[in-house]
């Protein structure tokens, strides 16, 4: 549900930017969704593709989603461990569960804590 309101934010941004740059259509928008953003990637894409059709400048826009790999800081030695890159189908909680049996690559500790990864960023726009 909140994915739809965030997709609406994206749509508003695209409409505003395309106007500002005097473009007729947005062909491509690249968005980064952090692994710990709490945003379900699939629902966000679904929401955006549903509402984009209401506006001619965005009606055919391709949404490219980048999902960076999750990073975990070791609470014992501060090493940053990188987890498996999320696929677009993955729910945020699954991202954390994958690390739960892993150990720090440097010191073997099990105390790995999610680091960063809460972002939702409009990275790049292609317009015509």
């Amino acid at each position: 549900m909140h994915e739809l309101s965030l997709a609406q934010n994206l749509l508003d941004q695209l409409l505003q930017l395309s106007k500002q740059h005097d473009a007729k259509i947005v062909t491509k928008a690249t968005v980064i969704i952090g692994p710990f953003s709490g945003i379900v990637v699939e629902s966000f894409a679904f929401g955006f593709n549903a509402i984009k059709q209401d506006h001619p400048p965005t009606a055919t826009a391709d949404l490219i989603l980048e999902t960076p790999a999750p990073e975990y800081i070791c609470l014992d030695c501060n090493t940053i461990n990188t987890g498996d890159a999320g696929t677009t189908n993955e729910h945020p909680k699954a991202v954390y569960e994958t690390i739960n049996d892993k150990l720090c690559s440097a010191c073997g500790s099990s105390r790995l804590s999610p680091s960063g990864g809460t972002e939702l960023i409009l990275k790049q726009l292609e317009m015509e």
Partner: peptide, 16 residues
């Protein structure tokens, strides 16, 4: 106004 074929803009702005 102009119609360049394609225009790429780096936005890097949080949607939040």
């Amino acid at each position: 106004h102009h119609h360049s074929d394609s225009k790429i803009v780096e936005v890097n702005q949080s949607l939040l």
